[in-house]
Design a protein around this nucleic acid. Structure first.
Lengths: 339, 339
DNA sequence: GTTAACAAGTTAACCGCTTAACTTTTATGC
DNA sequence: GCATAAAAGTTAAGCGGTTAACTTGTTAAC
């Protein structure tokens, strides 16, 4: 094991105090330019590497940001929705620029969260998707800078947040179907009484129907888990509804599952059913027919989240910021024109 | 900010020394059962959380394992191949059981790696895919416990490793095409002079042709980046080769891209071209037709990697272990029978 | 009845770095 | 020519634990 070089070693070699070395390394203007240069040079020559553990203990700042995923298990996030992987990549780039490192963590119970925030001493947190009460309790407790992403608890006006225009996005999706001549358009998503996100999307869909005077009744609202497998199963239920010609889906994974279910029963898409997804996951352009869907700009989302978070880190008194990002309808081949 | 509770606070409240508290919390048998209970109880009551930073500085062990991805950018891994997300999830579960946390990091240059290993004080590392020289230099230098996953530098007999039976897997893929009557079978992958993995797969393919006395010539070997986009482009080149009836693909992403390219030119798969992929990514079962491919057991891979790593962590003198995992051919709909 | 061994604590140094407060030297102003 | 301030360092305490070495009171052994 190579002996680790400390600021003491550097100080001894130069016949000065560790304090001076520390000041030099931190660019504190208390060291003469010549001395600073000598220190930096010998530090480099000796292969000095700053010990973050010691820095962290001493300053109380770890330069670590925690990213909390809305799943019990990390891989669930990556498998269920490519969104997370992409977001994390962009977000990491943004915080690395500022000298921070990222700890990716799944949803904890209260005790484990405390263990993390306090035990590992993270400086700040990004919360994705879900914001349980015990998060807030812990965050408040430790006065933690936090930014929320895709979180819709209206009562959380205490944190900056960035989310997407679900309502407008789904409005456009439904509108597009209407413009293609569809009149019996269904909506499928998670339980809109529990999922705020899907409720927002549902509302956008309803608004489009209303604006264009397309009749709606509750038989057009379906509930289904947003997963591939559940979509496949749901398809066989939907196929029986001969009146429905188009479907607005709250998630691409679900849409792709449904398409698969139709194919299994030899029903063509979009001839038998026009379908619009939500998210624009990578598979959406790969499946056949490729999926028309509502897309969000993940890169901007990540950089906004980072920006808001650093505002809080650098100035705890800075004001709360909230942004709702625009969505874009990506037109592919899963919608047919009818007359 | 809630005042952090330390072992000093606990000690003061009980009129004892911090040392005793530390011993109690670490289950060192130097504290009477009654005292231990009192300590543990008040620790809990006061909301004590162990400060890992301090522990780390004091013991030199951080309880952090670094996972090094073969990309410059984290998101590349997650987007390019779902394998990484899955592996990480399983691996994390395994190390969490042992009280370790995971730091996911992209490929570094030398200086940044040192900064990590030494600066953050990680205890051990898992290396995925690529093992650059400077990794080895740093690891040797710091006597770091390391396990290699999918790394094929034959000269690295110093580290435990787990990899997959590329040769046998691709042999089976080619054999399956042969059994379905194909005679002109091409292979496409990354440059086999640079990618050891794809060379192994290519060799398996060649062996199958040889064993079954199927003629081979170099016009059957194609080079293409293993990405969706490159696959789409490559398809237009392949379509011109009327003699080729089947294709062995070194990656699913590539295979799916090629399938897409064929569809764009109105060529049916598997009628015009039978195709076998490699990896069994999630999309492979979603695309149409679903992709026949070679699948690996990621969960076992991750738990083996964790096991080998802990052997080294707990006993640096433990012997090097190497495992090559079996692969399974998943038969779906992308291969047709010809006579 | 003395000694040795043990149980249950305590003491204090250490991990590597930061930083407020202090000292010494040199420059500045009038 | 003298007070004042600035520049460049030094000193030492502190961050929150760990742990080897020491102390003290009991118990067991012969």
């Amino acid at each position: 094991m190579a002996k680790k070089v400390t600021i003491y070693d550097i100080a001894k070699k130069l016949g000065i105090t560790p304090a001076t070395v520390s000041y030099a390394l931190n660019n504190v203007p208390k060291v003469s330019p010549e001395m600073r240069k000598k220190i930096l040079d010998t530090a480099m020559k000796m292969g000095y590497v700053r010990n973050y553990t010691a820095v962290s203990l001493s300053t109380g700042k770890s330069k670590i940001i925690a990213l909390l995923l809305p799943f019990k298990d990390i891989s669930e996030a990556f498998l269920q929705n490519p969104f997370y992987g992409e977001f994390i990549g962009f977000f990491e780039k943004n915080i690395k620029k500022e000298g921070y490192d990222l700890f990716i963590q799944p949803l904890y119970d209260e005790k484990e969260l405390e263990l993390w925030l306090v035990g590992r001493g993270v400086d700040a947190a990004v919360v994705l998707g879900t914001f349980p009460d015990f998060y807030e309790k812990s965050f408040k407790n430790h006065n933690m800078p936090v930014v929320l992403v895709d979180v819709y608890n209206a009562d959380n006006k205490d944190y900056s947040s960035v989310c997407i225009a679900d309502f407008e996005g789904e409005f456009r999706a439904a509108e597009y179907l209407i413009q293609n001549g569809h009149k019996r358009i269904a909506f499928v998503g998670a339980d809109i009484n529990n999922s705020i996100v899907d409720k927002r999307r549902y509302d956008g869909y309803r608004k489009a129907l209303a604006d264009y005077k397309i009749p709606y009744d509750d038989s057009l609202l379906f509930k289904c888990n947003p997963t591939f497998a559940d979509g496949v199963e749901f398809a066989s239920k939907l196929i029986k509804r001969k009146d429905i010609t188009a479907l607005v889906c709250a998630a691409d994974t679900l849409a792709i599952g449904i398409m698969n279910g139709y194919r299994m029963q030899n029903k063509q898409i979009p001839e038998c059913l026009s379908i619009v997804g939500f998210d624009d996951i990578q598979s959406s352009s790969l499946v056949y027919p490729s999926l028309t869907t509502v897309k969000q700009d993940i890169e901007s989302k990540a950089s906004l989240a980072a920006k808001f978070l650093f505002e809080k880190i650098n100035n705890p008194e800075s004001s709360i910021r909230t942004v709702t990002m625009e969505l874009k309808l990506i037109i592919r081949d899963s919608v047919s024109k009818i007359n």
